[in-house]
């Protein structure tokens, strides 16, 4: 990939990178999943990683939060090398990074309220019930689901689960948000609503976001900048407009 550093030029000024990845590789046994990942996520931007399924998108963001550990290369979050962080340093870092799973991963034995309480009582170890209730209501109102506060996750539709998952992540006020296929499995209208919600929440909480998707509509709505991934490496970078007219078949196939 030619010019990853020209991004700084696109934005006109020098930006701070909150996630910096250089030459990251990941193997599962003999299988090479990530061959060479090099990218920066700049403060305040919405970066989309576009790629077909099975290309290693989820593996990449799981490495960022150390759910998987990469084999080679460097991966820094807030300037700290993630590999080799001590337990409590890693925990601190994870509270600053929100992760929305593809399946939303709601705790299905708990109500929506308990799902949202969990990070506050188990991570922040907060016992102030007024503060807890206030934050839960605020964040549920933000995703437009205050009415579902006492529902069980199994009673919610796919789109609603995504919203609650987003609320549960935002309740810790993360500085970086990682979205794993936020619109996959949803109908086009709900997909659009979720994409717009991501944008709205990014403005409200001032997060830097990395959005992984194969949904071009979601990429168009949410992305300030798009990276295209193929076979464990990035093959193109640019804005939606720039990539739309790309001569590379692998890139332009997304836009058809």
């Amino acid at each position: 990939m030619e010019n990853i550093n020209t991004v700084r030029a696109i934005n006109g000024n020098h930006k701070e990178a909150v996630v910096q990845i250089k030459g990251m590789k990941k193997f599962f046994g003999k299988k090479k999943v990530l061959t060479n990942i090099t990218m920066d996520l700049f403060k305040g931007e919405n970066l989309v990683v576009l790629g077909k399924s099975g290309q290693g998108k989820s593996v990449t963001i799981k490495c960022i939060v150390a759910l998987l550990s990469h084999d080679e290369g460097s991966l820094k979050v807030f300037g700290q090398e993630v590999k080799g962080l001590k337990d409590d340093e890693l925990k601190l870092l994870r509270t600053k990074v929100g992760f929305l799973f593809q399946s939303a991963a709601l705790y299905d034995s708990m109500t929506v309220r308990e799902n949202l309480e969990f990070p506050l009582t188990r991570v922040l170890r907060s016992t102030d019930m007024d503060m807890i209730n206030q934050r839960i209501e605020e964040v549920l109102e933000g995703v437009g689901l205050l009415g579902a506060i006492d529902a069980m996750p199994s009673d919610l539709s796919g789109g609603m689960r995504k919203r609650i998952g987003l609320a549960r992540t935002l309740i810790l006020k993360p500085e970086i948000m990682l979205y794993d296929e936020p619109t996959t499995g949803l109908d086009p209208i709900t997909s659009r609503e979720i994409s717009e919600l991501i944008l709205e929440m990014q403005k409200k909480y001032k997060t830097s976001s990395l959005i992984i998707t194969h949904d071009i509509a979601c990429a168009e709505i949410t992305g300030d900048r798009i990276l295209v991934m193929n076979d464990g490496a990035f093959i193109a970078e640019g804005s939606y407009k720039e990539l739309e007219s790309s001569p590379n078949d692998l890139v332009s196939s997304f836009f058809k």
Partner: peptide, 11 residues
């Protein structure tokens, strides 16, 4: 992915 979600949130 509920266990991963717990871990990633810092719990």
């Amino acid at each position: 992915e509920q266990i991963d979600a717990m871990e990633v949130s810092g719990a």
